[in-house]
């Protein structure tokens, strides 16, 4: 596990979630700033997948491969689906739904870390 990338993902995802909550609270819809943040997170998640596969193939640790790869791949699906779901809603609740998607990323990263260090 490349810790700085993991913590970067946790921090940026939480920031995006907070931003989405602020938008929802102010009765605003999702904007390009938020979508841009999601884009950066998604790129970092792809990097995390690559780093994860490389490190998994070179480690002597007793890591559960299927779960590890499962979390890595699963994390890529969350934000695109969440953004699609949120954009189809013309009220503040779209931003709220996207906040849920953003919160899932840090949870997955922490689970990933658990699987790696188990």
């Amino acid at each position: 596990m490349f810790a700085p990338l993991t913590w970067f993902l946790v921090a940026l995802s939480l920031a995006a979630a907070l931003f989405a909550v602020v938008l929802a609270a102010r009765d605003k819809r999702i904007n390009w700033t938020l979508l841009g943040m999601l884009g950066v997170i998604e790129v970092a998640l792809v990097a995390q997948l690559v780093v994860g596969i490389v490190q998994l193939s070179g480690t002597t640790r007793d890591v559960s491969g299927p779960f590890f790869i499962g979390y890595l791949i699963g994390s890529l699906i969350i934000l695109p689906v969440g953004a699609f779901w949120a954009l189809a809603e013309s009220s503040r609740w779209g931003a709220g739904a996207l906040a849920i998607a953003c919160v899932v990323i840090p949870i997955l990263e922490l689970r990933l870390y658990d699987v790696w260090t188990a």
Binding site: G82, W85, A86, E89, S91, W93, G94, G96, A97, L98, I100, A101
Partner: peptide, 8 residues
């Protein structure tokens, strides 16, 4: 509405 979050 709130259903958006529930479904998410």
């Amino acid at each position: 509405g709130p259903g958006r979050i529930l479904i998410a």
